[in-house]
Computed example of a mutant assay.
Amino acid sequence: MRNILIVGATSAIAEAAARRFAASGARFYLVGRNAEKLAAITRDLEIRSGQPVHGESLDLDLLDQHPALLERVEQALGGIDIALIAHGMLPDQEACQRSVAMTLAAIHTNALSAISLATLLANAFEARGRGALVVIGSVAGDRGRRSNYVYGAAKGMVGLFLQGLRNRLSGKDIQIITVKPGFVDTPMTATFEKKGLLWAQPDQIAKGIVAAVEHRRDVVYLPWFWRWIMLVILHIPERVFKNLKTIVINLGLQGGLLLY
Rank of each mutant, 00 (worst) to 15 (best):
L253H: 05
R48S: 08
E94S: 14
A68K: 08
W199S: 11
E193H: 00
R19Q: 13
V31G: 04
A118Y: 02
K245A: 12
D185R: 14
A106K: 07
I85R: 02
T191R: 14
A118I: 02
V139K: 00
I247Q: 09
N167W: 09
R143I: 12
D61T: 15
D81P: 00
T178A: 13
L112N: 11
V240T: 13
N34G: 05
V53L: 00
L244P: 01
V220W: 01
T119S: 10
N123S: 13
I13D: 01
T103W: 07
V7W: 02
G208E: 09
T178N: 14
I80A: 06
A83H: 00
E94A: 14
A22M: 07
N110A: 09
A200D: 08
T42I: 06
L133P: 10
D59L: 09
Q65T: 13
Y29M: 01
D81A: 02
T119I: 02
S57N: 00
R33D: 04
T109W: 03
P237Q: 07
L133F: 09
G55C: 01
E15P: 01
D64T: 13
R2F: 02
E94Y: 02
M188E: 12
D81S: 01
L222Q: 11
R72D: 10
R72Y: 07
I47L: 00
F183L: 15
P52S: 07
S138I: 13
G156R: 10
V210F: 00
V73S: 04
A206F: 06
H54W: 12
G252P: 10
A132Q: 04
R128W: 02
K180E: 11
V158Q: 05
L84H: 03
K155Q: 11
A35L: 12
K180Q: 15
I115H: 03
A200T: 06
S57G: 14
H215L: 07
V213W: 03
Q65F: 02
S116N: 14
R20D: 15
F225N: 06
L160C: 08
V219N: 09
L69E: 05
F241R: 02
G164T: 05
L169Q: 06
E15H: 10
D203G: 06
K155I: 12
L117W: 02
I236L: 14
F125T: 07
A190H: 01
L120V: 04
H66L: 13
N123K: 15
L258T: 15
A17T: 15
A12P: 07
R48N: 02
Y29C: 04
E214R: 14
D44Y: 01
D142S: 11
W228T: 15
P67R: 08
I82E: 08
A154N: 04
T109C: 10
S24C: 11
I4L: 12
Q201R: 12
L257K: 14
Q97A: 05
H215K: 15
L60T: 09
I85M: 06
L162R: 10
N148A: 12
F161G: 08
V240K: 02
D59A: 13
G8K: 04
